[in-house]
Design a protein around this nucleic acid. Structure first.
Lengths: 186, 186
DNA sequence: CTTGCTACTTACTTACTAGTAAGTATCTTT
DNA sequence: AAAGATACTTACTAGTAAGTAAGTAGCAAG
């Protein structure tokens, strides 16, 4: 695969996560990469195409991470921890996650981008629900709520903590993450 | 105050909450109201001015709601319930809240809009923290976490539930709200 | 009756957006 | 050496964005 193509995908993702989908332009990318506007259209004919590709790349990355954790025999705590660390990293970089950012722009996205975003969310929630269930069975997690609801609450807190940290300076995000973790301890 | 001015504010708020700040234009408003582009500039010289005014209006509305609840001697449960109902209504209308929507576009907002948005968030968190504290003192709420962290977690869940419900069809938002409420029961 | 204010419209500018058609340099294959 | 594919650039179009300057209709007060 082309290096330029990958750079465009990476820059596009960062722009979505910092400025938002409707605030970035092909010009932002071309200027940064020192190429022309039309070069981006060569790889991604339309902005909707780029948007969809960025989401697809994120799905692939997430699935590779899960496979990797399974092959390394990570237990449920280690898996949850790895996932939370993605958000801690995003927090440090002052970026939203793809789902939080594109979720706000959802009504302005193309059908393709929408459905890939929905697919990504479903994959994450399904995975999170599954580790909550197996963790509870092994008695290393403790909670009373419905597992999917619990997964949604955890995911909501992670997504929104990135958004709120921009607005609310005093946000103790480490405290929030710790609260999420502590809450699952038996 | 002018009726047109108020209609612009209302429409602008709805556009932010459905399409997002960077996806709506003065044309969207003028077409809907059957007036010209320039008429909106008459009331709100710039888009950033309109944005700031919309947030200010929301702060005012929130403060009036709090005053109203205090004068009617609402207890902490009633106050929390009233607040959660705002989100249930937003959910029904398939709209985000102002904070969730503008939070995603934060880096593209003017300094004035940013600071009003920060002020609004601080007011909400401060109020939510205060009812958690007094509710706990009265032993009608029970929780172990730091009150402000708990307030942030509750607020995060509300903000993000609106966003996720667009993306995740199977989101049981009533279950999420119930979980938030149940979690505070002694 | 005219001056002035409110609430706009008309008509425009400047700037940027996504997108395209046609051309070109460089490497690869035959 | 010719043909073709790859990776772009050049040069453009059409549309839309925010914003503005000047004009106007209607009412109100002096």
């Amino acid at each position: 695969m082309s290096v330029t193509r990958e750079k465009i995908l990476e820059l596009g993702e960062n722009l979505i996560r910092t400025k938002g989908y409707n605030a970035f332009s092909y010009q932002d990318i071309s200027t940064e990469l020192g190429i022309k506007n039309a070069a981006i259209h060569y790889y991604f004919p339309s902005k909707e195409n780029l948007g969809t590709s960025i989401v697809k790349t994120n799905i692939q990355r997430f699935e590779e991470m899960i496979d990797n954790m399974h092959s390394r025999n990570f237990d449920e705590w280690q898996q949850l921890d790895t996932f939370v660390k993605i958000y801690i990293k995003s927090h440090r970089e002052q970026k939203l996650c793809i789902i939080g950012s594109l979720g706000s722009d959802f009504n302005t996205l193309s059908e393709n981008t929408k459905s890939e975003l929905m697919r990504m969310t479903e994959i994450i929630i399904k995975w999170l629900t599954s580790i909550l269930i197996s963790g509870k069975e092994k008695r290393i997690f403790a909670f009373d709520e419905d597992p999917q609801n619990k997964a949604l609450l955890i995911f909501s807190s992670l997504v929104a903590s990135l958004q709120l940290s921009r607005i609310f300076n005093k946000l103790d995000y480490k405290g929030i993450y710790q609260t999420i973790i502590d809450d699952l301890k038996p």
